[in-house]
């Protein structure tokens, strides 16, 4: 069933804002509601109806009911330090509203590969099933959010639930902790370690979310570009110099190197052990092959920074 009224959370972020704008271009969708506390990333002049609301507030249920929303896209969860309350409380409140609603029949959750945790004892490449073990160990906010969504799907079996686990999102104008990290003049890395990193280009991430909204594709899907870059290699490609420091000092060193780089525990773990996800299920079951490889996506970001 095609969606008629879509509600997108987290539209102040680039991904959420661009997704809402992209949905508004689809003539089959009657209304697109964009929810956030600020309108930063919602392009003006689109059909997106901006709703200034905090998803941590129970009044979000009224928004869903009055607009007769049938598809909820939870794009609000953020990586990065200090987002815990928004991520966890916001998700609980939003999902509670979905559960009570009579009109919502589909939920799409933007998650991240951080659910897999990672470390010296983890497999080199994670498939979707690997999160079952990782949820208990260091999956972070994302693991909690997915847990709530799966709980809702159990209580409301009529609901179509798609969870999309994104690799690190990158692209020409992406501004997040990781892109700021790669823009530092000297980039602190963990001494004695070199991580494997995988990126997904924002256009691929958007295309996957859009496909999950317009098609009924229940399940959990990893989304990442093909191929892998080593962290030191990525830093070199960005024209920067890696600066290895002891693991305990990576946080202070990043701040000293100049910048508003607040890495989350999940991202710090990424920098020492890396994380690669298997996208076979995305390509076969979901029916989408990312157009950008990890390297091409990263180079696209580098080109935009160099300009």
């Amino acid at each position: 069933m095609a969606p008629t009224v879509v509600l997108v959370t987290g539209v102040a972020d680039q991904l959420g804002g661009q997704l809402a704008a992209q949905l508004a271009d689809d003539p089959d969708i009657e209304r697109v509601l964009g929810v956030d506390t600020a309108r930063l990333a919602v392009p003006r002049g689109t059909r997106v109806e901006f709703v200034r609301a905090d998803i941590r507030d129970p009044r979000i249920a009224k928004v869903i009911d009055s607009a007769r929303v049938d598809t909820v896209v939870h794009a609000a969860p953020r990586s990065g330090a200090g987002a815990k309350e928004l991520n966890v409380i916001g998700t609980m409140q939003l999902l509670a509203a979905c559960q009570r609603s009579r009109t919502v029949r589909k939920l799409v959750v933007k998650s991240t590969a951080e659910v897999y945790g990672g470390g010296a004892g983890a497999p080199a490449v994670f498939t979707e099933q690997d999160a079952d073990q990782a949820v208990q160990r260091r999956g972070g906010d994302a693991a909690e959010i997915e847990g709530y969504a799966l709980g809702l799907a159990r209580r409301r079996p009529d609901l179509v639930l798609t969870i999309v686990r994104l690799a690190e999102v990158i692209g020409p104008h992406i501004d997040n902790a990781l892109t700021r990290y790669f823009s530092l003049p000297f980039v602190p890395t963990v001494l004695g370690f070199d991580a494997r990193v995988q990126f997904v280009h924002i256009t691929d991430a958007l295309a996957v979310l859009e496909r999950a909204i317009t098609h009924d594709l229940p399940g959990v899907f990893n989304v990442g570009g093909d191929g892998v870059l080593m962290l030191s290699q990525a830093i070199r490609r960005a024209g920067r110099v890696p600066l290895p420091v002891p693991r305990a000092t990576i946080g202070p060193a990043t701040r000293l190197a100049g910048g508003r780089v607040a890495l989350s525990p999940g991202q710090s773990r990424l920098l020492s052990h890396g994380r690669v996800i298997d996208t076979t299920r995305l390509k076969t079951t979901f029916g989408f092959t990312p157009k950008w490889t990890t390297t091409a996506a990263f180079d696209d970001f580098v080109r935009a920074v160099a300009k």
Partner: peptide, 15 residues
């Protein structure tokens, strides 16, 4: 190629 990061590794990190 090392200084510009222009080389390839596989998904296990093999260079």
């Amino acid at each position: 190629s090392r200084l510009t990061g222009d080389y390839q590794v596989d998904e296990f990190g093999f260079d």
